[in-house]
Simulated assay, not measured.
Amino acid sequence: MPAAGADEALERVCQEYFELGEVLLFAFENPQIQEWTDREKETESDKALTRLIERAHAEGVVDPGLPATWVSETMWALLYSAWQYARNHGAAKHASLDLCLRTFKKATAATGP
C-alpha cells in the first residue's frame, strides 16, 4: 500500500484527536489538572505534528505562508469548536467532525502555484 499523502495524514490526525475530545475537554475545564510542570514544553507528538505540517507545505497541500504553529493552533481551535458544537448543540459527532475537517482544509489550503 502506498504511503498516505500529507492531506490524508492530517485528516487522520484530526480524526484521532477528535476522539479524545471528552478527555481533553475534561482536562481543559478542570484547572487543577492543568497545573503540571512543563505543560508548555514541546512534546514528541507536537514535533511529529509540526513535521507533518511541514510535509503538507512541501506537498502543496497546506499554504506555505501559514506557519506550522499557526496551522497546529488552528487545528486545535477547530477541534475545540467541534467538541463544543456536538456538546452544546446536540450535533452528531460525525457531523461535528465533518465540519471541523472541511473548515480546516479550506482554511489552510494552498491556493495554487
Rank of each mutant, 00 (worst) to 15 (best):
C14G: 13
E8H: 11
Q15N: 07
I33V: 10
R39C: 08
R12P: 02
V13R: 03
A9E: 06
E29D: 09
E8A: 15
E11V: 03
Q32H: 13
I33W: 05
L24M: 13
V13M: 00
A9V: 12
L20R: 14
L25H: 03
F18K: 01
E22A: 08
D7R: 14
A27L: 13
T37V: 14
D7M: 11
L25F: 02
E22I: 03
M1I: 11
A6I: 02
V23L: 15
N30Q: 07
I33P: 00
P31D: 00
E19T: 06
Q15S: 09
R12L: 14
Q15R: 15
A3L: 13
A3W: 08
Q15P: 05
L24D: 03
T37Y: 11
A4K: 15
L25E: 01
A4H: 12
G5I: 11
G5Q: 07
D7T: 11
G21M: 03
N30V: 04
A9Y: 06
G21S: 01
N30M: 05
E19D: 06
E11M: 07
Q15A: 15
Q15K: 15
E19N: 04
W36Y: 14
Q15W: 08
A27M: 14
L20E: 10
E16C: 09
G21I: 04
R39T: 09
D38H: 13
E29L: 07
E40Y: 12
E8K: 11
L25K: 00
W36N: 06
T37R: 14
V23F: 14
R12M: 08
F18E: 00
Q34N: 08
A3E: 07
Q32T: 06
E19F: 05
L25V: 07
D7W: 11
V23W: 12
W36K: 06
P31H: 00
V23P: 02
P2S: 03
C14M: 15
Q32D: 09
E22R: 06
E29T: 08
V13Q: 03
D7A: 15
D38E: 12
F28W: 15
Q32M: 11
A6K: 00
E40N: 13
Q32I: 12
R12A: 15
R39N: 11
R39E: 07
N30A: 02
Q34G: 10
L25A: 02
D38R: 13
Q34I: 03
V13A: 00
L25D: 04
M1Q: 12
V13E: 01
F26C: 05
A4V: 10
N30R: 04
M1A: 14
F18W: 01
D7F: 09
I33F: 08
A3F: 08
P31G: 01
E29M: 09
L10E: 00
Q32R: 14
A3R: 11
E35Q: 14
V13H: 01
A3G: 07
E35K: 15
P31N: 03
P31C: 00
E22N: 04
M1Y: 12
Q15D: 10
D7S: 14
P2Y: 04
Q34P: 06
L10S: 04
V13W: 02
G21K: 00
C14F: 10
A9G: 04
G5P: 10
F28G: 04
E16K: 13
F28C: 08
